[in-house]
Simulated scan of single mutants.
Amino acid sequence: MARDPYTVLGVSKSASESEIKSAYRRLAKRYHPDTNADDPKAQERFAEVNGAYEIVGDKDKRKQFDRGEIDADGHPRFTGGYQPGGGSGGDPFAGFGGFSGFSRGAGGARGGEAGAGGGANRTWRFTSDGTSGVDEILREFMNGGGRGGTGRQSGFGSGGGGSERGADLEVVVTVTLEDLASEDKLRVSLPTGRTVDVTLPAGAEPDQQIRLRGLGHESLTGGPAGDAILTLRIAAHPIFTRDGANLKLDLPVTLYDAALGAKVRAPTLTGSVNITVPPGSSSGKTLRLRGLGLPSKAGGKGDLLVTLLIDLPRELPDDFLDMMREWREDHPYQPRSPG
């Protein structure tokens, strides 16, 4: 009888699906026959790992095993209900009720399982939905047989289309607005240890995914590698906000620059530029600097929208306050709508 599958994989009975899958991948890679051709013990261990994963890696079989309905070989456990009559020439399962899902095929008993009656070898397979297991039995023969050979096959082996594609690798990548604006490729380090240079798509959006073909997990069966799937996160910027391909910036200016007009410096993602503040500019006035935004999906670049904010000093001189009082008396105006 096979060992407890949890023990074989080195996980607890409360292990999650991802923990079980991770343990299986690690052990299968370690003991795979392709890398242990001269080590029969490794091949036996590989078969044992595959057999264990067939039980606890399958949700339904795992539940059946945990309830004690099947054993570590995947065979149903019988607790009673046997009626005499099996005999050497009868059906050894004829007396068991409540199991309609048995199928049997001629030849090829698994790993020395004796067939019923006169030593004739028969393979028995239980399926929970009551359907025939003939297809599964044929698939076992196509993939190299059962336990009597190098191990129970689970998509492994070189024949019968057994090579499987490696698993995809999912990676979250946080990028900055400077990254999106740059024409340089972004260097990304993958969990596999590989470093790749990635071209960010124009107009990239948060949670957008980039698929890198063949850069995922290696196949354990000689098949093609999986893909690396990058999910983009866009980091908040300390001074710019994003509006599609446009960027927005709040720019503090002095009262006298706003009143008299001036040339002032304004930051962009690639450096600073001079902008013209028109005379008599109010706080909240927006200036558009064309082509200084982010790359657009439609081609070209968006704009930088600069909103002027008049900034008064913390301490206002007395003569300035006197002038404001005089101005209020002589030149009153209403910036807000009445009411």
Rank of each mutant, 00 (worst) to 15 (best):
F78G: 00
Q208G: 06
G284M: 10
A2I: 05
D58R: 05
I20K: 00
E315R: 15
G118P: 00
I20M: 07
I20G: 00
T192I: 02
L215R: 11
E326A: 15
L220C: 02
V171D: 04
G86E: 07
K263N: 14
G87H: 07
V175M: 02
L247T: 06
L177P: 01
L27K: 12
N246S: 09
P279W: 02
A258F: 06
S18V: 08
L177F: 10
H75K: 12
G145Q: 03
T192P: 05
Y82Q: 03
L186C: 01
T7M: 08
F240T: 01
R3Q: 14
V253M: 00
Q208N: 05
T127E: 06
G144H: 08
D319T: 13
D39A: 08
E329A: 15
S18T: 08
G293E: 03
F78Y: 15
E136L: 09
V306D: 02
A109E: 06
D66Q: 15
P267V: 09
S163G: 08
E140W: 13
P84D: 06
V172F: 00
F320D: 08
P317F: 07
G85A: 11
D60G: 12
F78H: 12
T286E: 08
R77M: 12
I55V: 15
L289I: 15
R110H: 11
P335C: 08
M324Y: 01
A37K: 15
K41M: 12
R45S: 14
S189P: 00
F93T: 01
G148V: 07
D197K: 15
I210K: 07
S88C: 04
A114R: 13
G89L: 09
N143S: 14
E164V: 12
R233Y: 01
F65Q: 05
F93L: 15
L294Y: 05
R325Q: 14
P84S: 11
K63V: 09
M1T: 11
L232K: 14
Y333N: 14
A116T: 06
R122V: 07
A120P: 00
A202V: 05
G89D: 08
S158V: 07
D168K: 09
V277T: 07
L232A: 11
A47R: 14
A23Y: 00
S283Y: 04
G112L: 04
I310K: 07
F65T: 09
Q153E: 08
E69M: 09
Y31Q: 03
G151S: 07
G161R: 10
P5F: 01
D257F: 02
S88I: 07
I229L: 13
P313G: 11
K63F: 01
I234C: 06
P40I: 06
L321D: 10
E69K: 08
L289T: 06
T35I: 11
A228D: 05
E170V: 11
A23C: 03
R77I: 15
V198P: 04
S296D: 15
L27G: 02
V134L: 10
G299H: 11
N50A: 04
A298L: 11
V173S: 01
R288H: 03
A52E: 02
T254D: 12
S16I: 06
R30F: 11
G166M: 05
D4R: 02
Q209P: 06
A167C: 00
P295K: 10
L232H: 14
G89C: 04
F65H: 13
V306C: 02
G284H: 09
G193A: 08
A15P: 07
L309H: 14
K301H: 13
L220D: 06
S12Q: 09
L287Y: 06
F320Y: 14
